[in-house]
Amino acid sequence: MTALTLLVMAGIFLFSGADGTRSGMQSGIFAGLLFWMNPEDASFLVRKTAHFTIYLVLGLCMNGTLREWGIHSRSRRAFLSVLLCFLYACSDEWHQTFVPGRAGQIRDVLLDTAGSLTGTVAAILIQWPAHRRRKNGTGV
């Protein structure tokens, strides 16, 4: 799980390193599918959805990584997962301030953190039945 988490983080870093023109073109490909929307609004929606979604995946992965590392308390794992994703989001937005045509934005950090919180909660809910079976001594 650690390798997958690092892979997701590397993907985020690579997408953040794309200059403004390239990033706009990448968003434009998917925004074109939203033909009924104003192109500018569609591009905005695609970019923000991408932020939320990739950090949702990072939250899922980070939770698994922390569990793999021996942090079994769900509340501690959730807190650390969201905190680490938040710190990574901050570093990601800071990284974008060095990329031509890009800017770091607080609202993106908040959106990223909301995505990671959603992913973390989803990971805990997915693991919940197995946890209950182990706690009750009835399975896995």
Rank of each mutant, 00 (worst) to 15 (best):
M1A: 14
T2N: 12
L4V: 15
L6C: 07
L7G: 05
L7M: 12
L7D: 04
L7I: 10
A10K: 03
F15V: 07
D19E: 13
Q26C: 07
S27H: 00
S27E: 00
G28C: 07
G32I: 02
L33I: 11
F35M: 13
W36R: 02
W36P: 08
N38T: 07
E40W: 04
E40H: 05
V46D: 00
R47L: 04
T49V: 09
T49H: 10
A50H: 03
T53A: 14
Y55N: 02
L56G: 03
L58E: 07
G59N: 08
C61Q: 14
M62W: 11
N63T: 14
G64F: 00
L66W: 02
E68P: 04
G70F: 10
H72P: 12
H72E: 14
S73M: 05
S75E: 14
S75Q: 11
R76K: 14
F79K: 05
F79T: 09
F79Q: 07
L80S: 08
L80E: 01
L80Y: 06
L80T: 07
L80D: 01
L83K: 13
L83V: 12
L84R: 11
F86G: 11
F86W: 13
Y88T: 13
D92A: 05
W94G: 14
H95T: 15
G101W: 03
R102F: 03
A103S: 15
G104Q: 08
Q105M: 15
I106L: 15
D108A: 07
D108T: 13
V109E: 04
D112T: 12
T113C: 02
T113S: 03
A114S: 03
T120A: 02
V121S: 13
I124R: 12
I126A: 01
A130E: 12
H131C: 12
H131G: 08
R133Q: 06
R134A: 13
T138W: 05
G139V: 03
G139D: 01
